[in-house]
């Protein structure tokens, strides 16, 4: 007699567990644990990294993220409004911008801002300007689409109600539509924030001084000078300490949004 679906599934899962356990055991037996401990979990080296890993590296990562996110939000809102404009050239400009900067590798844009523009225009901007623009220009392109979706998600009756009270289109946008649109997109915007935190690791290409290193650069430099992987583990943990609370927050907000419907 053929097995029932439920039984077959249970058997399949049992086989999978056995395979996982066997694989895990094999790794544990084959691995050289003293070597691993020395190279990945060197406590002395880890201890040496504090407090700089938090006070300099993590702080820089957070500052760079904040700058790029703020720029992306403001410029992204502008792009979203241009895409929704009744004026064709605005729509066309915004669409072109969004397509270009979503289509290019972020690293290329960062290089362009950091090296292309100084060469072309013989100017040197403050490193924070390069960082804000390098990441922010790309972030704006992604956020513009998210913000547009938020604005379009606000029911049409809201604009009509505001207009019927005599408010201009701009007034209605500013006090009625945009505040509601942003409420809808807090979860996806938080996701963009998490992506941006990770993308700050690309900024090393702009060149760093000890005071401007972000987390990954800080870890990599120690990896090179000390020939040991422990710094990567430490900065990895710091990244997760920043990103996991945010992704958890997104989950909570999404659940709340779903309930509010």
């Amino acid at each position: 007699m053929a097995m029932r679906g439920r039984q077959r599934e249970r058997l399949f899962r049992a086989v999978m567990y056995v395979l996982f356990a066997a694989g895990f055991l094999a790794i544990v037996l084959v691995a050289d644990w003293t070597l691993i401990r020395r190279n990945f979990f060197n406590v002395d080296l880890a201890r040496e990294m504090f407090p700089d890993v938090l006070l300099i590296a993590a702080r820089n990562t957070i500052v760079y993220t904040f700058l790029a996110f703020s720029f992306g939000l403001v410029f992204g809102l502008l792009l979203a409004l241009m895409r929704l404009s009744t004026i064709k050239p605005y729509r066309w400009l915004a669409t072109t911008y969004i397509e270009i900067f979503r289509g290019l590798p972020a690293l290329l844009t960062i290089f362009l801002i950091g090296f292309g523009i100084p060469i072309a225009f013989q100017t040197r901007w403050h490193v924070l300007v390069n960082i804000t623009l390098g990441l922010g220009i790309v972030a704006a392109a992604y956020m513009a689409e998210t913000i547009r979706a938020g604005i379009e998600g606000v029911p049409k009756g809201q604009m009509e109600a505001a207009r019927s009270l005599g408010m201009s289109k701009t007034q209605a946008m500013a006090s009625v539509i945009i505040p509601q649109g942003f409420r809808l997109i807090i979860p996806p915007l938080t996701n963009e924030l998490v992506l941006l935190i990770k993308d700050t690791s690309l900024l090393f290409v702009l060149g760093t001084t000890p005071a401007t290193k972000e987390l990954l650069k800080f870890g990599r430099d120690l990896l090179n000078t000390r020939a040991n992987a422990t710094p990567l583990i430490v900065v990895g943990v710091v990244y997760l300490m920043i990103t996991i609370p945010l992704t958890q927050l997104v989950a909570v907000l999404e659940r709340r949004n779903a309930r509010a419907r």
């Binding site: 029911p155 009756g157 809201q158 009509e160 109600a161 505001a162 019927s164 505040p179 509601q180």
Partner: peptide, 12 residues
Amino acid sequence: GMVFQQFNLFPH
């Protein structure tokens, strides 16, 4: 003054 079927109050 305009009153709509769906009220259209500002929920926020």
